[in-house]
């Protein structure tokens, strides 16, 4: 597959006790693009997402990352290969401070994480980098606040800072805008665009205006299958997609 695609799935299928959530999906994510996965509820977006990040094991099919078969790799190992995911509900470490949240991500590369006899002081050398990251996403003023006390939008921002701490080649964002107000959506969209430089992003998102605005490629799923793929202009002209979203005979998908 060469260098063009960073992630490729081949006939990816996931069945749950007779119910097929994802069926024969061949997804190809082009390097250094933002790729969105959309579709009506129950289309298999999140399942697909969990399969790619190895939080679920596929029933059938293959997943390649940078040309390597990762179908049977552990989820923690995926992260170490440079593919890091976020979660639908904000995933921060609530009892750790904002700075500590980012530092936990940074400290893995330090190689001292198993050293239970060592003083936590040695983590302070990571503070400068951690401060840069929380500054970049705009939560620097909450440096010493427990992450659980932040507002929803700031938790999401912190989550992105934590993910960026790993300097991943590829980010997978699971509904990054879920539950956000207009103000936070705008800020987060800017942030995603900024961090997408030299990175590849695959995201599941319901907010179509965000998808239209950010994505280079969009894959539409319906009932576990790929319905359409292309740019926003292409898929919003596709009558099948319009039908999937609106029911037959109503309006266009190009709203919002």
């Amino acid at each position: 597959m060469g260098d063009e695609f960073i992630v490729e799935t081949r006939s990816l299928t996931k069945e749950f006790k007779g119910f097929v959530a994802v069926s024969d999906v061949n997804l190809r994510v082009r390097r250094h693009t933002i790729h969105a996965l959309i579709g009506p509820n129950g289309a298999g977006k999140t399942t697909c997402f969990n399969l790619v990040t190895k939080f679920l094991t596929p029933t059938k099919g293959q997943i390649l990352f940078n040309g390597t078969d990762i179908t049977h790799t552990q989820p923690a190992a995926i992260a170490r290969h440079g593919m890091v995911r976020s979660f639908q509900i904000s995933a921060v470490f609530g009892h750790l401070t904002v700075l500590e949240n980012v530092r936990v991500a940074l400290q893995r590369k330090q190689g001292k994480s198993f050293q239970f006899w060592r003083s936590g002081e040695c983590l302070n050398e990571l503070n400068t980098r951690a401060e840069e990251l929380i500054e970049a996403v705009g939560v620097a003023e909450y440096r010493d606040t427990p992450a659980g006390e932040l507002s929803y939008g700031r938790k999401r921002a912190l989550e992105i800072a934590t993910t960026l701490a790993l300097d991943p080649e590829m980010l997978l964002l699971d509904e990054p805008m879920a539950g956000m107000g207009a103000e936070d959506v705008r800020r987060t969209a800017d942030l995603i665009r900024r961090v997408s430089a030299n990175r590849t992003i695959l995201m599941v998102e319901h907010n179509l205006s965000v998808v239209a605005d950010l994505s280079d490629t969009i894959t539409v799923l319906k009932l576990g299958r790929v319905l359409a793929e292309g740019s926003y202009a292409e898929i919003s002209d596709n009558p099948e997609v319009v039908e999937a979203y609106m029911g037959s005979g109503h309006g266009a998908a190009g709203h919002g």
Partner: peptide, 14 residues
């Protein structure tokens, strides 16, 4: 503490 607060997230950080 990170694992205690959010285990899947700790996994996703590697």
């Amino acid at each position: 503490k990170a694992i205690r607060d959010n285990e899947p997230r700790a996994v996703s950080l590697g």
